[in-house]
């Protein structure tokens, strides 16, 4: 077997060099498609991290009327915590609310200065285990009796609730579209790469048809004849995958710190384990494309 591996490698390299223009074309298309796969994976990770961080901020605020009885507040808090949909409940007093408001408005001191007495209500900040259930939870809260008793505006209980259902909905729609576009592009490029590899292997087969004829004549086994061509397809796609991985790593190293600087409030960091997974995915995808493309060509153009 040791002789065979050396032989196959030598043959593949010779094939590659004979048709280096076509081979280069194949490598470049695989490179581009895998690069796109990689970039869309990285973007996917970043987007879902952003969605996550926004979701974390999606909470239900229940505004309480001034002077609400402590036991009522505690009862409501207890009722909320008992619900499976609720993750945390946080009591924010009138003073805390004012502090927060002052911090947020630090840019416009004239507003802060004009506040004579505290106009802000106390509130309960509720976060949910699944942010998509916001609407459901809100509907539940609205009919709770304790809530109706101590809410800031008993005449219009609706107004005592603040929540970000729309933000969540839009974000989900947006990420779905992004993912869909990514998948379509990647699929198209994968097809182009397949065609390219198919063509280079066809040329390689054509340029070696005499050798192949003699190999069949003297009884070289079918896989012995096929192996160098399959190996050539795999080598082309591995080369493309390697280039794609290098590019993504380089771009990440160059761009990420600046991006992080520009958008401080959002997390755009990609973990090292994610990068390793990405590299693995690209290599596996590349080898699959290479084997498939070469396999098609062998089926069609190499009768053994």
């Amino acid at each position: 077997m040791a002789i065979n591996v050396g032989y196959f490698l030598r043959e593949s390299v010779v094939n590659f060099r004979r048709n280096w223009v076509m081979s280069l074309g194949a490598v470049i298309t695989i490179y581009l498609s895998l690069l796109l796969v990689g970039v869309s994976m990285v973007l996917g990770v970043i987007v879902s991290e952003i969605v996550q961080s926004v979701e974390d901020k999606v909470s239900i605020q229940i505004f309480l009327k001034d002077g609400a009885a402590t036991e009522d507040v505690e009862a409501l808090q207890g009722w909320l915590l008992a619900d499976a949909m609720v993750d945390t409940v946080n009591y924010v007093s009138k003073e805390d609310a004012l502090e927060r408001f002052k911090e947020e408005m630090a840019g416009s001191p004239e507003i802060v200065e004009n506040i004579r007495e505290n106009p802000l209500p106390a509130s309960l900040d509720v976060t949910l285990t699944d942010p998509r259930q916001v609407q459901e939870m809100v509907d539940k809260i609205k009919v709770n009796e304790t809530f109706l008793k101590i809410c800031d505006r008993p005449d219009e209980p609706e107004e005592s609730l603040k929540y970000g259902q729309q933000i969540v909905d839009r974000l989900f729609a947006f990420t779905r579209i992004i993912r869909l576009i990514g998948v379509v592009f990647v699929a198209m490029l994968a097809v182009v790469s397949l065609i390219f590899i198919n063509n280079t292997i066809r040329l390689a087969i054509y340029s070696r048809r005499k050798e192949i004829g003699i190999m069949r004549l003297v009884g070289a086994s079918n896989w012995f004849i096929r192996a160098p061509f399959l190996l050539e397809g795999v080598m082309q796609s591995l080369l493309g995958a390697a280039l794609a991985i290098l590019t993504i790593v380089a771009v990440q190293a160059a761009v990420m710190p600046r991006l992080q600087e520009a958008v401080l409030f959002l997390p755009v960091d990609v973990a090292a384990t994610t990068m390793i997974q990405l590299a693995l995915v690209l290599v596996v995808a590349g080898v699959t494309i290479g084997l498939l493309g070469a396999g098609f060509a062998l089926r069609r153009y190499l009768k053994v």
């Binding site: 002789i3 003699i214 190999m215 070289a220």
Partner: peptide, 8 residues
């Protein structure tokens, strides 16, 4: 030699 090489 090729004939022998390719049958291993």
């Amino acid at each position: 030699a090729f004939a022998l090489e390719v049958i291993g």
